[in-house]
Design a protein around this nucleic acid. Sequence first.
DNA 1: TGTACATCAGTGAACGCGCGTTCACTGATGTAC
DNA 2: TGTACATCAGTGAACGCGCGTTCACTGATGTAC
Lengths: 240, 240
Amino acid sequence: MAGLRERVRAELTAEIKALARRQMATEGATSLSLRAIARDLGMVSSAVYRYFPSRDDLLTALIIDSYNELGEAAERADAVGDRDDLRGRWRRVSDAAFTWAKANPSEYSLIFGTPIPGYAAPNDTIGPATRFTVVLIGLLAHAAHLRMRPAVIVEPGPSVQVDLQRIRDTLGVDIDDVTFLAGMQIWMGLFGSISFILFGQVNNVITDVDEFFAVTAEALGRQVFDVTGTSRAGADVERA
Amino acid sequence: MAGLRERVRAELTAEIKALARRQMATEGATSLSLRAIARDLGMVSSAVYRYFPSRDDLLTALIIDSYNELGEAAERADAVGDRDDLRGRWRRVSDAAFTWAKANPSEYSLIFGTPIPGYAAPNDTIGPATRFTVVLIGLLAHAAHLRMRPAVIVEPGPSVQVDLQRIRDTLGVDIDDVTFLAGMQIWMGLFGSISFILFGQVNNVITDVDEFFAVTAEALGRQVFDVTGTSRAGADVERA
DNA sequence: TGTACATCAGTGAACGCGCGTTCACTGATGTAC
DNA sequence: TGTACATCAGTGAACGCGCGTTCACTGATGTAC
């Protein structure tokens, strides 16, 4: 059996990452320490270097895992349900993000919190980092295809127009500027609200954060994925 | 002159905080070190303890200062202009927040980034922390008074209703649930977008972050502070 | 199938550095009579 | 106004702890003939 050593190696690598995550949960990502992990592992500190050549490489692995988990959760959430039910899809995807973040607050902080000083993410992280975004862009493309119009219409300036065109070209999607911009708004609104909840900004203000998140996500979804054409009509009905 | 010693003391206290801020800018808040500050100051490390009884007390002072600076910037920005021009007021206030955050990224991270593990903010921080929010609530109250309606109408669930009522009672303001919720959305959207920009989430995506922020803030403002009654009409004009 | 060699995991010691906090102390600045 | 005492800022040494990374090494696991 050729793979024995390899299998043990893979297991230990996974265990190191698991311990690192547990350590992040209590100490924070900045004070993630190879020595402490080795201690937990019952190994001598230098042994960890067989698995990760430096602390930053371990961090990178954790960041990639986190992006992948979040992205995969979003993909799974969007794999079910009627393709045309965009508000439903948005609700499932945003819920998946919130659920993952609540379950993995340190991993969430690692990718959406304050950048770790002295650490520069290598290029390997870019792919996993875009995974969630790709799901969202799928929703936007479908909304554009259904000729939905955001509740608030804003036009980008010249520089942002160029940026949006570049993304269109890169990903080969067909999303008009207005929808694209509105999509970025709810993207930032989604993670803004998750950060506010997780980082304690609504402590002493909001009691039931789950209920609060639900209404927030609903409001965000309605900004882009409301009825076709005059979404205001739908809002008026709701209001009456 | 009785105040000589006191004056020197105040100056040194200020200088310690200034050095601490400079240190945060390069090392991050988590690795803020009293010893390094003492070194920069040309003093022995134990001398700093005459001014701040512990590292956490220094952190607290920095947090309070940061909240106060942000709050004051918002208050100043909202002190000018027509009271009824809510979109203008929002633009000035949100710009003030962004400008302050760009100029003081580490201070911004300190209050809106990942919480520092092991540090619990004492009650002294609550007052300054609400300063910005109070400005925003002023806008919301005025919007409600002018009978503006948010572009997207969502109703809070029972628990959030109670929370909102508590805030109304505490602050003595008259803002309906729907406006209040929409206000919280743009509050989270504002700082969500600032965090995305400052924490590098839109790197390689957005080139001109100032232009991007401007359109973001505009979109947020239009969600709450559009024309009275049927704000959709205004959007339709814009769209045509 | 059995032996010789190469690969690799983990050890243990060391380098050089950092930190927060305490404590007894000197000497200067302020205060009360 | 001048002296005696109290207050306070800053010193220097120490305690006890942490960290990332390197390096020569032992001994076990895998590989080639």
